[in-house]
Amino acid sequence: METAIEVTGLGIRFRKNRRGRRTFKDLFAPAARRVRTNEFWPLRHVEFMVRPGEAIGVVGRNGQGKSTLLKLVAGVLIPDEGSVRVHGGVAPLIEITGGFVGDLTVRENVRLAAGLHGMPGAEIVRRFDDIIDFAELQSFVDTPYKHLSSGMKVRLAFAVVSQLEEPTLLVDEVLAVGDKAFREKCYRRIDELLEEGRTLFFVSHNERDLRRFCTRGLYLEGGRLVMDGPIADVLDRYNAELR
C-alpha cells in the first residue's frame, strides 16, 4: 500500500533540565537511575500510517506530544526509538516566523526562506510576485523584516511555505493567528492544496478547523496514541474526556 508517512515504534527522550541538577552523590549512582530521574519521554510507542491525500488532525491537551510529533515528521527532531519515514518532501508550517532574518529586507528573506526549503532559484524568481501578492506586502518589499508587524510576518511566512510543491503539508496552529480576512485566505489556499491531492498533517485546538479540513484524527494522551479514527469520533472522545 502506498504511504505518505510511516511511523513505527516512535519515541523521543528529553532532559528535564540542561544540567540535570546533579549532586556529588549522583556521581556514584548507577547510570540507569540517573537517566530515570533526569529524563522523560514526551512521545513513546507511537505507530500509524498516512496515505497520500489524507487529511489528518492531531488532537490532545497541551503537553501531550502533538507539536513534538509534528517536528519528528518534519525531521526537525530525531527519534530515540523507532522511525519516521516520509515519502516525498514536506512543506512545514511550524513555528512559522522562524528562520527569517531581521536585518534583511522582505525581498531578501523570501529568497532566503524559499531557498532553505529547497525551492530552486529560478522557481523563486517565478513565484516571487505570487508570494508577495498573497502576503499583501507589495509596498514593503524593500523594508527590513524587523520593521514588519507580527501579522505581516505571519502572512509572509505562510505565503512562502504555501508555494512549496512538496506533497505533504505540516501545519501547527498557525491558523490561530492573523486577522479574520487573512485566515479565510489561508483556508482557501489549504482547500486548493487538498484538491490537488496533497497530504495534510494538522495540529490544532480549533475544532472548527479540524472538522473543516480533516477526515481522520489522531488523539494523543501522555505521549501515547490512544485513538486513531474518523475525525468526528476522535473529537467526540476527546471532548468527552475533557469534561
Rank of each mutant, 00 (worst) to 15 (best):
R198S: 04
E192W: 06
K185H: 05
A181F: 03
F182V: 09
E184P: 00
L210T: 00
V203S: 02
D191C: 06
L200A: 04
D191Y: 01
G197F: 01
A181W: 05
R188Y: 08
A181Q: 06
N206I: 09
C186Q: 07
R189M: 13
A181G: 02
F201H: 09
A181S: 08
Y187H: 15
F202R: 07
E207Y: 08
L210V: 00
K185P: 02
F201D: 12
C186G: 13
R208L: 13
V203Q: 00
D191F: 03
L200Q: 02
H205Q: 09
E195W: 05
R208K: 13
Y187M: 12
F182Q: 11
G197C: 09
E195P: 02
F201V: 09
F182Y: 12
D191G: 07
E195M: 12
F201Q: 12
L194M: 15
L193C: 03
L194P: 03
R183C: 09
R208W: 11
N206V: 11
Y187Q: 13
V203T: 03
T199R: 12
E192V: 01
Y187S: 11
H205K: 10
E184S: 10
I190M: 14
R208H: 13
E184C: 07
L194C: 11
R183L: 10
V203I: 15
I190L: 12
D191W: 01
D209T: 09
F201M: 10
I190R: 00
D191E: 14
E207Q: 14
L200M: 07
L200Y: 00
F182N: 08
E207L: 13
E207G: 05
V203A: 06
V203C: 04
R198A: 04
K185E: 01
S204R: 05
E207S: 13
D191A: 13
R198V: 02
R198T: 04
E184R: 11
E207V: 15
L193F: 05
L210I: 00
R183F: 06
H205G: 00
R189K: 15
T199Q: 10
T199G: 07
E196L: 04
E184Y: 08
K185M: 05
R189A: 15
E192M: 06
F201R: 06
C186P: 02
F182I: 11
R198C: 07
R189I: 13
L200V: 07
L210N: 00
S204K: 09
L193V: 12
E207M: 14
G197V: 05
D191V: 07
N206A: 14
R183S: 14
T199Y: 08
E207K: 14
E192P: 04
L193G: 05
F182G: 10
G197W: 00
L194S: 08
N206Q: 15
L194A: 11
S204L: 07
F201E: 10
Y187P: 07
A181L: 05
F201P: 06
E195Q: 14
R188K: 14
L210F: 01
L194G: 10
F182T: 12
E184N: 10
K185L: 09
I190C: 08
A181D: 05
L193S: 08
F202Q: 05
Y187W: 13
R188F: 08
S204D: 04
H205A: 07
T199S: 08
R208C: 04
G197P: 06
S204Y: 00
L193M: 15
D191T: 10
D191Q: 06
G197R: 12
E196D: 09
